[in-house]
Amino acid sequence: MTVVPNELRELVHRSCFALDREDFSEFLSYCAPSFEYRISAYSPEIRKPMIWFDQDYGGLESMFDMVSQHLKRLGTLFRHPSMGIIDRVSDTEMKIVTSVLIVDTDPNGRSKLFAAARYTDTIDLSGTAPRLTARFVNLETRDLGVGSHIPL
């Protein structure tokens, strides 16, 4: 299969839009069964890299099933991806680094920046459609207010 960057760009965007809509089934449909997801940040306070969230495909699935029962932040999070670097790792694997701004809009329609981050996505090209095998989110923003119950 030949994958052109447009298909990769579309995969990243579609995965963001699915999370924006909190359509977790759709998001998982873009992920391979071996999918790994991680959110990390560097703390200059303790001078250490930190992992704030990590789940595999099954862990995300379980977590998504419970989201509706949690008390969640109000409003929506919209992810604004800006594709950066695309590296072909092998014939069947590519890595994409994407800068992302995540905008929080409250129920009254007031928007503010929630987080600035960078995705490093690993994409499997061996199947009929490209699939995410990993998304590592590195946060620049470390004060996330009340936080979030859903991945970024």
């Binding site: 959110i39 930190m50 992992i51 996330l144 009340v146 936080g147 979030s148 119950h149």
Partner: peptide, 27 residues
């Protein structure tokens, strides 16, 4: 350490199932 981090984060990280709800209640 990875497993301990996960235990911590499941409850108390900014993407945890506990602390964000407390923060929501406070606000």
């Amino acid at each position: 350490r990875l497993l301990r981090m996960r235990h911590h984060n499941q409850y108390w990280g900014p993407f945890g199932r506990n602390v964000p709800e407390d923060a929501f209640a406070v606000e």
